[in-house]
């Protein structure tokens, strides 16, 4: 049975979310690498750069579309979008 997509997000939103996922994946890999190579300066520098980039992208995403983490939320909004927006496994979201 073709269930069709949940109301799909606009492509700019998907692109930004994918970009966050890619950068966060690099961070996760560097995280594991640094756990066993804790004095690798190049690894730490790479982590620093990607971490700054991720924080910026998550902030952009949150302002435009809604929260991904509770530490960066749009408190000007009258709506608690963390709970009202779709959860990631619904498919249209990610």
């Amino acid at each position: 049975m073709n269930i069709g997509c949940k109301p799909c997000m606009d492509s700019e939103r998907q692109r930004l979310l994918l970009e966050i996922s890619k950068v966060d994946f690099a961070l996760k890999e560097l995280n594991l690498y640094l756990d066993t190579h804790p004095y690798d300066q190049q690894g730490m520098e790479n982590f620093r750069q990607y971490n700054a980039l991720k924080n910026k992208l998550v902030k952009d995403y949150t302002e435009k579309y809604g929260p991904l983490v509770l530490s960066i939320v749009d408190m000007d909004s009258r709506e608690w979008k963390w709970a009202t927006q779709d959860w990631p496994w619904e498919g249209g979201y990610n």
Partner: peptide, 17 residues
């Protein structure tokens, strides 16, 4: 732990099985 409200890799399946 903290939760991030996204999947680590996108999952978008349109056909049930």
């Amino acid at each position: 732990w903290n939760y991030e409200k996204r999947l680590q890799y996108p999952v978008k399946i349109t056909q049930t099985n």
